[in-house]
Design a protein around this nucleic acid. Structure first.
Length: 233
DNA sequence: GCGACAG
DNA sequence: ATCTTGTCGC
């Protein structure tokens, strides 16, 4: 899969915010097609090493069976340091590089971070989805923008994540008595569908499997897919 | 001016 | 993000 250069990456924070504001207008918050396929790509990036390189990882999961279809990792130098609100300018170039090595084209991308639950409604999941032109979901471990009322303690409990009058996403409890995750639309999917995919991707851990496994892969803690396709949970 | 601030 | 094993509780 190939893609076009929408904008430069090595930019100042001011330029990055301007780019976000422009591109946010292209984000689609509804399902593009009936999402019946089940190849979900989880992506994540490790911290940088002593030489300035980060490891980007993508794990493609067949969701009904949770079989790992493909694992790819790449090494790259993030163009920017981490700035709150500009995470995608640091991580997306690395993640795109990893996604471009895939033999499989996923039906959906799940990202560790926010989608439209962002000051300019253009978090990393939206940025990546727009660039790849694929449906994407943001599933973060903490809030960047917005707030919500307390949640019930059981798995599946939800509360709207709100910023003034804007409904940005959903605080979702994926395990009973465990801190919620924050789900938001990335691109080409609606919030309701996004929440259902996140919940159905959770297998006994707080984080959904695609993202959780990508995190392990980026840290070098995930074994390559076995020949027969079985995974050792 | 003062906090808040994905990973 | 990262420094990091065992331990407490559902």
């Amino acid at each position: 899969m190939e893609l076009k250069e929408l904008h430069p990456w090595n930019v100042t924070p001011q330029e990055a915010r301007s780019i976000q504001q422009q591109l946010s207008q292209q984000v689609l918050r509804e399902n593009e097609v009936p999402i019946g396929a089940r190849l979900i790509a989880g992506v994540d990036i490790s911290g940088i090493n002593r030489k300035g390189f980060a490891t980007g990882a993508v794990v493609v999961l067949d969701v009904p069976t949770f079989t790992i279809r493909e694992i790819r990792t790449v090494q790259a130098v993030p163009p920017m340091k981490y700035v709150p609100g500009l995470l995608s300018f640091r991580e997306v170039p690395v993640l795109v590089k990893a996604l471009e090595t895939l033999d499989t084209t996923p039906d959906l991308i799940m990202v560790d971070g926010q989608g439209i639950a962002h000051p300019r409604r253009f978090g990393i999941a939206s940025h990546l989805g727009l660039l790849m032109d694929l449906p994407s979901i943001g599933c973060g471990k903490s809030i960047l923008t917005g707030k919500h009322d307390p949640l019930e303690e059981h798995r599946g409990a939800q509360a709207p994540l709100m910023d003034r009058q804007d409904h940005l996403g959903t605080a979702l409890r994926t395990r009973t008595n465990v801190s919620p995750v924050y789900v938001s639309v990335g691109h080409k999917i609606d919030l309701d569908t996004a929440v259902r995919w996140v919940l159905s991707c959770c297998r006994g851990y707080r984080l959904p499997e695609p993202t959780r496994l990508a995190h392990q892969a980026a840290a070098g803690r995930l074994a390559p897919p076995s020949p027969n396709g079985a995974s050792a949970g």
